[in-house]
């Protein structure tokens, strides 16, 4: 979208920064240390909870609630995220227990969570398929307060939905990190170690940033994280910041990575505060990202493509 004439940046509300849930299996202590570090950053909303694999129980719901209390005490908003794929009765029970807690806003990762959250405010994760205004209307009637756009949807659909959405309903974009692309019954980390999911030995813990998949000609392509398949490239919407502001997007999500997350948050925050140019910020992000940057989904291209910023530099 071209810059509008007479555009006054100060009149536009600044999107808030959010931190997505940790998608990888990190040791318990590292998780606590991570959030302690994050509390010192300018991020305003923090999502936390296990969204990928129910076998990962190094943190229980009680631990996440405790962290959420600390986050709230630090003046930030805590949101409890839930599993994206629910298969077993045990997973459903845990989900029900998480959804029974009324203290924090909850992010629904699967349709099952909608069943439990209906009638109170909730967030729809990017793993809930909200592609159009009628779905938005339907979920608003149930209590939707905020939704994270499915990651494959680009600026034209974001613009259309933002024009349509009622006051008080917030739109969040997955703005930085490896893209969550797919979920399966199979654990791909275990599969590639010659193990089954039932006897996985928690081998995903050996890959705090996921297990890289490279094409036969050396292109870093995918990143395996248990039952989740991510992009190997790192989605970055920072160059689109002026446009994102103009559209009225409410939140920008940064997805945690095993290193440099706090620094990445600070770069985004500086760009939001207009003390750093988004293209300069992107050059810095390139040094901190675990893979090449991409942004194709935003402009309606293949997700792995990079079109917005770096090619011009």
């Amino acid at each position: 979208m071209p810059e509008r004439a007479g555009f006054n940046m100060a009149e536009i509300q600044r999107p808030r920064l959010s931190l997505g849930p940790i998608l990888y299996l990190w040791p318990r202590e590292q998780v606590f240390d991570f959030y302690a570090e994050i509390l010192e950053t300018p991020v305003e909303v923090i999502y936390l909870g296990e969204t990928v694999c129910s076998k990962r129980r190094q943190l229980k719901p009680e631990d996440y609630w405790e962290l959420a209390e600390r986050i709230t005490a630090a003046g930030k908003e805590a949101v409890i995220s839930t599993l994206a794929l629910i298969e077993s009765e045990g997973e459903l029970k845990t989900l029900k227990r998480i959804c029974a807690d009324q203290r924090f806003l909850i992010e629904a990762g699967d349709l099952a969570a909608l069943e439990f959250l209906e009638g109170r405010p909730f967030v729809a994760a990017h793993s809930i398929n909200l592609y159009n205004q009628r779905t938005l209307d339907f979920l608003i009637k149930l209590g939707l307060k905020r939704w994270v756009m499915p990651v494959e949807l680009g600026r034209s659909t974001v613009a259309d939905l933002l024009k349509y959405r009622p006051v008080g309903v917030e739109c969040e974009l997955f703005a930085f990190g490896r893209l969550p692309l797919a979920y399966s019954a199979r654990c791909f980390t275990a599969y590639n170690r010659g193990l089954g999911k039932d006897n996985c030995n928690f081998c995903c813990g050996d890959y705090p940033g996921g297990l890289l998949v490279t094409t036969q000609e050396g292109q870093a392509f995918l990143n395996l994280n248990g039952i989740q398949t991510q992009s190997a490239t790192v989605h970055n919407l920072l160059p689109a910041l002026p446009e994102i502001r103009a559209l009225g997007v409410d939140l920008l999500r940064i997805s945690p990575q095993s290193q440099h997350t706090a620094e990445i948050i600070r770069i985004f925050a500086a760009c939001l505060d207009q003390t750093l140019d988004p293209l300069e910020g992107t050059m810095r992000l390139r040094q901190l990202a675990p893979g090449e940057l991409c942004d194709g989904y935003w402009t309606g291209q293949a997700g792995y493509r990079l079109g917005m910023a770096l090619e011009a530099h």
Partner: peptide
């Protein structure tokens, strides 16, 4: 292999 309706692998490579 993936949960249908929530697999974006194809658009990641092809749009």
């Amino acid at each position: 292999v993936m949960v249908e309706g929530r697999c974006l692998l194809s658009s990641y490579a092809s749009g």
